[in-house]
Design a binder for these strands. Structure first.
Lengths: 345, 345
DNA sequence: ACAGCCGGCGCCGGTTTTACT
DNA sequence: GAGTAAAACCGGCGCCGGCTG
C-alpha cells in the first residue's frame, strides 16, 4: 500500500468543507484560472497539509496516462549490472531524467530469452518508455509490444534493429580501439596481448576485433589472445586472464585490455610476474574511469562516454514520448585515446 | 503514455467474444478456479497475444493498492550518487527486490532541505515504500507522511529517528576503524595521517573520529588530519588531500584514508612524492571494493558490506509492507579489517 | 434442479468538462 | 459573472447473480 490508511481527496474536501473537485483544482494550481476564492484556496491547502494528503499516484497515472518514469533494463549480474559501467551509465540517465521531471526505474534484469516474461514485466512496469542496455533482442520485442524504446550499448546484436521505431545510442568503440592500435604500432610494438576478447557467449567482442584488425593492417603487428571462458569483466578476471596470457606468449611487449577494471587486474598480474610497466610491458585499458588516472602507473586508456550515453538515451526516449522524430534513429558518441604513463616511459 | 493507442481489456474481450471479466480471470490465472472452459481460456489468450495486450499498470496499481516497487533516495551527485558506493548498495537492493517480485525506482536525489518538495515526490513516486540513503531528516519526514521507510547509511544524523515507525540498517564502521587503529599502533606506527575526516558540511565523519580516538587511547598514537573543504570522495580528492597532508606533516609513517577510492589517489600522491608503500608509508583504506585487492600494492582496508546493506534494507521494507514487526528497529552489519601488502612489507 | 460458466455492475481515486446556483 | 459542485471517464478487479444444458 502506498499509504497505510489512504487519506483521500474526499477527506480533504470534508475537512475543508468544499467539494473534491475544488481540492484538485487548488492543489494542481488551476484554482485562479477557475476562479476559486483565495479564502477557499487557503482553507484547502491548510486541510491538505493537516491531513498530510498526497494524491494517489496510481490514480493520477491512470487518468493522466503518464507515469513520468523511464524504465531501464540491462543484463543479469554479474555480467553488467554490478560493474561500475552500469553506474556511470545509470547516473547519466538519472540526471537527465531529473532535469526533465522524470525518474528512473530499474526493471528486472535479463538472464536469457526464454525465462524473461515480457508480458509480466510490462504489466508491472509503471513506465512510459524503456532504455534497453545491451540486449538487442529485448529492444526489438518491447517495440513489438508498442513500448517506446531506446537501445544503448556496445552493440553486438543491434544490427537489424528497426530504427524507424526505436532509438539507438552507441559509442564509437571501434574508433577508439583503432587509435590505440595505431599508437602502439607507431611507438614500436609488434606483438601485443589482448585481454577481453571473449563475451560469455564466446563471440569476440567487436571492439577487440577492431583493435586486432587495425594493429595488423597498420604496420603488420600481431595480436595474441586467449579465451578464458566465462568472465565478468572484473579485476579478478583481468588478473587471471593476463597470467594465462603471459604463460602462453611471454614475448609480448604490450597488452590491450577490454576495460579499465580488468586492466587493474592485468597490471597487478604483470607486476607479480616481475614485469615493469611500461618499461617491459605497456598497458592500455578501455573506459577511462575516474580511478584510471590515479593508478600506479596512471593508465593509458580510451575514453568511453558512458555518462553521456545514459543522458542521451533518456533525452531520446522523452523526445519519442513527446512525438518528436529525433527520438528515433541512431546516434554515435565519440571516443578518444588518452595516453598516460602505462605506455610511456 | 504507456502504450500509444492503449489496447484495453475490452478490446481483447471483443476479439475473443467474451466479457472483460473473463479476460481478467484468464490472464490472472484464476480461470480454473472460476471454471472458465479450456476453449474459452485458449481463445482469450490467443486474442490477447494477437493484440499484444498488456493490462494497464496504473489501473492495476490503483485497484490492487500495490505498485510492487521500492523507492530509493540518496544525496545529490557528486557527493554520493556518482560514486560506486551507490552502485554496490543499489545492486544489493535491486537483487533482493527482484527475488521478491519487486523492482527499484530511483527517486529524485536530495540537494537541500528547502528545495526538496516531499509532496511532489510522493505524488509522482509510484512506490510502496522508500529506502533512504544517508539523509536522516528525509527518513523522518517521509515517515511523517505515512510512507513506509527504511533508513540506511553511515549515519551521521540518524540518532533521533523514531525506530518504532521506521527501519534502520547501518554498518559497524567505527568497529572496523578501531581495528585498523589498533593494528597500525601494534605494528609500531605512532604518527598517522588521516584523509577523509571532513564531510561537505565540515563535521568530522564519525568513523574517522573513532579511528583517531582509538589510535590515541590504545597506545597514545597521534593522528594528523587536514580539512580540504568540499570534496567528493573521489580518487582526485584523495590525491589532493594527501599532497596537502604530506606537506603539513612530512613525518607520518601511515595514512588512514576514508574510502578505497580516495586511497587510490592517496597512494598515487605518495608515489609521486617518492615515498614507498608500505616501506616508507603504510596505507589503509575503507570499503574493500572489488579493485582493492588488485592495486599496486594490494590495499589493506576495512570491509564494508554495502551489497548486504541494500539487500537488508529492501528486506526490511517489504517486511513492513507485509505488516511484520521485524521491518522496524535497528540492524547493524559487521565490518572487518583485511590486511594486505599496503601495510605489510 | 443443479452444476458449470459467464457477464453486469460498482469501486479504486483521481482529472476534466459541464452545469448549476 | 463569480464560485462551486456534479458527473463522466480513465482501465482494470471481483462480487454476485443469472443464464445455459
Amino acid at each position: 500500500m502506498t499509504r497505510q490508511h489512504g487519506v483521500s481527496r474526499a477527506d480533504v474536501a470534508g475537512e475543508a468543507g468544499v467539494s473534491p473537485t475544488t481540492v484538485s483544482l487548488v492543489l494542481n494550481g488551476r484554482a485562479d484560472e477557475k476562479r476559486v476564492s483565495k479564502q477557499t484556496q487557503e482553507r484547502v491547502r491548510e486541510a491538505a497539509w493537516r491531513l498530510r494528503y498526497v494524491p494517489n499516484s496510481a490514480a493520477r497515472a491512470m487518468v493522466g496516462r503518464r507515469h513520468l518514469t523511464v524504465g531501464m533494463v540491462t543484463r543479469q549480474p554479474p555480467s553488467t549490472l554490478h560493474l561500475p559501467i552500469f553506474e556511470y551509465f545509470a547516473v547519466g540517465a538519472v540526471e537527465e531524467a531529473a532535469r526533465r521531471q522524470h525518474t528512473v526505474k530499474i526493471l528486472p534484469p535479463v538472464t536469457d530469452v526464454e525465462s524473461y516474461d515480457v508480458f509480466a514485466v510490462l504489466r508491472d512496469a509503471h513506465v512510459d518508455g524503456i532504455v534497453v542496455h545491451n540486449v538487442g533482442w529485448l529492444a526489438q520485442v518491447l517495440a513489438d509490444w508498442r513500448m517506446p524504446v531506446v537501445y544503448v550499448g556496445p552493440g553486438e546484436d543491434h544490427d537489424d534493429l528497426p530504427l524507424d521505431r526505436i532509438g539507438m545510442v552507441t559509442t564509437d568503440e571501434q574508433g577508439g580501439m583503432c587509435s590505440s592500435a595505431r599508437y602502439l604500432a607507431d611507438v614500436g610494438h609488434t606483438t601485443v596481448g589482448v585481454v577481453g576478447n571473449a563475451t560469455p557467449e564466446g563471440a569476440p567482442l567487436r571492439r577487440m576485433r577492431a583493435f586486432i584488425d587495425e594493429f595488423a593492417h597498420h604496420r603488420g603487428g600481431i595480436s595474441h589472445y586467449i579465451d578464458p571462458g566465462d568472465w565478468t569483466w572484473s579485476p579478478e578476471d583481468g588478473h587471471r586472464a593476463t597470467k594465462q596470457l603471459l604463460e602462453a606468449w611471454p614475448g609480448i611487449t604490450a597488452v590491450q585490455v577490454g576495460s579499465d577494471w580488468m586492466a587493474i587486474g592485468a597490471m597487478r598480474a604483470l607486476v607479480e610476474a616481475g614485469r615493469r610497466i611500461p618499461d617491459d610491458v605497456a598497458v592500455v585499458g578501455f573506459g577511462d574511469f575516474p580511478v584510471s588516472a590515479f593508478l600506479n602507473p596512471p593508465l593509458t586508456t580510451v575514453t568511453w562516454p558512458l555518462h553521456d550515453l545514459g543522458g542521451k538515451a533518456v533525452e531520446m526516449l522523452l523526445a519519442q514520448l513527446d512525438g518528436k522524430p529525433d527520438g528515433l534513429g541512431a546516434v554515435v558518441l565519440p571516443t578518444e585515446l588518452v595516453v598516460r604513463s602505462s605506455t610511456r616511459q
